[in-house]
Design a protein around this nucleic acid. Structure first.
Lengths: 210, 210
DNA sequence: CTGTATACGTCTACAATGTATACATATGAG
DNA sequence: CTCATATGTATACATTGTAGACGTATACAG
């Protein structure tokens, strides 16, 4: 039908990956596709719709990794979590966008359904499933977004500097935790531990009342 | 020292609250302050720094509600969570920004320290405190951002329509949960339940190894 | 072949944005 | 008076999204 639109989304994704989402302008995109800026509007009504199309592409890419579906529910959830994080590392611009619009594209709904099924399989009461889905998704996307945007302050601002901002004694928590805060943060194992905790939380909700 | 800067931030906050963050342009801001656009650059080096200053203001407003500090650690954490969510509802533009830069302003660090202390008081092992702080903050900010941006799809897109996007049987989870999905979502009690679950998670981590 | 609909693209133009550069003024200290 | 510091102005530029009018090429109806 409209192979041209896919071509445009491809180009937009390429620009975003190579030079950041900020460089995705209608002009730059048009040049990459080889047309005039205004030609893009035949295939995309808005720049907003363009961005929506881009995240749609990424969400679609979230499904395949879960193909080996023979595993247990907790492994499937963990795999999905890792897939989201991997996606966000490959496309650092994406995580922010995931927070900006409701997940109503077909692919997004499919992902949500996977989570629903896993939670049901875990024994979570029906009533609690939608809530827990939102809780988990919110955390995972939030983690990915934080990582991508630098909210976790990877290293540009070291903890010592952070503590120096305030007079001695004003940050008792920070001083007590100083030895741990000075360690280089390993977000890989941290995310792993977070997923473990969340899975435990799910089991608690499931075990508590079924 | 520079009361003018505070005046500018006040005006920026007012514009954002009244007409949305999108209407906060250097020109609009300058007009509101009563000066030329370029005059703003004497007090703010960037537009980015302006935005940082704005979120700084909000973070500062997060502290006072926690004044009655006689309460237990779990009540203090819950109060902080509610304060964040309340802030995000009053300033819907803010939550997104919280994800975009590391929390390195003095006020932000103070908030983090409050969480550290609560977690330590809960009995969380020192080593795990920074991780749990990030976990909780990530979820709470993520929830607020989702709510503010419409990611939780308050009602404009009803679940029936969402399910209609895909052929029957492709969404087993959604069909099974239909009765619950059709209910109007009550984010107030949902957030409450989420906080409860997270506090339980903290107690589990604390109890498991101290 | 002719007429026409549909898909695709171009050209021009506009308003809005952030901000660099250069120039003013006002105030207070020495 | 002199001069530094804080503050503001005027002008200008590049970049952005996109509206509006116009062109062309392929396909199908008569």
């Amino acid at each position: 039908m409209s192979g041209r639109r896919e071509e445009i989304l491809d180009a937009a994704l390429a620009i975003a990956d190579e030079h950041g989402i900020g460089k995705v302008s209608m002009r730059a995109l048009a040049e990459r596709v080889g047309v005039t800026p205004m030609a893009l509007y035949r295939h995309v009504s808005d720049k907003a719709e363009l961005l929506d199309g881009m995240v749609g592409r990424l969400l679609a890419g979230l499904l395949p990794p879960d193909a080996g579906k023979a595993r247990a529910w907790d492994e499937r959830l963990a795999a999905l979590g890792h897939a989201v994080r991997t996606m966000a590392r490959r496309h650092p611009w994406a995580a922010q966008l995931l927070f900006s619009r409701p997940a109503v594209t077909p692919d997004a709904v499919r992902v949500v359904d996977l989570i629903y099924i896993a939670l049901l399989e875990a024994g979570v009461p029906d009533r609690e499933v939608p809530r827990l889905e939102r809780l988990i998704a919110t955390f995972v996307i939030g983690f990915a977004a934080s990582e991508a945007s630098g909210r976790f302050g990877s290293g540009s601002v070291d903890p010592r500097g952070r503590r120096g901002l305030l007079p001695e004694g004003e940050l008792p928590g920070h001083s007590r935790l100083a030895p741990w805060l000075d360690l280089p943060s390993d977000l890989d194992t941290e995310f792993e531990a977070d997923l473990d905790d969340l899975l435990r939380l799910i089991k608690a909700v499931a075990g508590g009342q079924d």
